Amino acid sequence: MTLISQTIKNDHRELEDAYNKILSSSTDDEKVRWQNQFTWELARHSIGEELLVYPAFEKNLADGRQMADKDRAEHQKVKELLYKFQGLKPSDHEFKPTLKSLWSDLSQHIKEEEEHDLVKLENALQQADSEKLTTSFKRTKKFIPTRSHPDAPDKPPYETAIGLMTAPLDHVADIFRKFPSESKSELPP
């Protein structure tokens, strides 16, 4: 089994790969496919953390509430930029600057999360609890929205309820979106 910190780090590497593929793609079609992959991964990852990982901070760490609130605030900024980015076309003059701004904020969040937050969480969890959290995180990502909805609540139980209503719409729309044929992560159905 995999620990939650490794699962989160794997997601972070997949996001970084998709980001780099957007920038290195030579055609607009490729950029759109990787843009959709990046959006799909980041939306699911962020909501999964908010539903499961941040409550684990609050439950298991003395300063967990402050860590979770800080991370939720960082997520909100990223969600707003992702919302803007997911609506742009590669030909839009804001496409690349918006992506770079989004990645700048996200990469700082990732660094802090990997070097500080997840280390503290793993130190507080038993291995079996970390593995259970991983299983729940992976399962949850299958049922949550796949696009950014920055106005949605970011704390359970409200995020869960809104997510369950929004996710089916996102999933149906994903059927009509283009995705890359190869990716390190699973591809949308």
Rank of each mutant, 00 (worst) to 15 (best):
K142V: 09
F176G: 04
M165S: 01
Q6P: 07
V119Q: 15
K138D: 13
R65N: 08
T39F: 03
A56M: 08
K21C: 05
A62R: 14
Y54T: 03
P55I: 00
D129V: 09
F143V: 13
L51F: 03
I162P: 04
E74Y: 03
E49G: 02
D117T: 06
T2Y: 00
A173I: 12
W103Q: 10
S25Q: 11
P55A: 03
T160L: 15
A43S: 14
M67H: 09
L82A: 02
K77V: 09
A167F: 11
K111P: 02
K111H: 14
Y158N: 14
D11W: 07
K79H: 05
I144A: 02
Y83R: 08
L187M: 13
I22F: 09
A43F: 04
I4E: 14
I162C: 13
L169F: 15
D71W: 04
G48F: 01
K9F: 11
H12D: 13
T146D: 04
F179T: 00
T135P: 00
K132E: 05
P189C: 09
V172C: 11
E80K: 14
E122A: 02
D63E: 15
K141H: 01
D174G: 07
K96E: 15
N10W: 11
H171P: 00
H75I: 02
P150Q: 00
E182P: 05
A152H: 07
K77I: 08
E30W: 03
M165Q: 02
S185N: 10
D154G: 05
S136M: 12
S104T: 12
N123H: 12
L15T: 00
T98Y: 15
L88M: 14
I47T: 12
I8E: 10
L81C: 10
K155V: 00
D105S: 13
S26N: 11
I47P: 01
D71M: 13
K184P: 07
P150S: 01
R72M: 01
P188A: 03
Q66R: 13
D28E: 11
Q37L: 01
T2W: 04
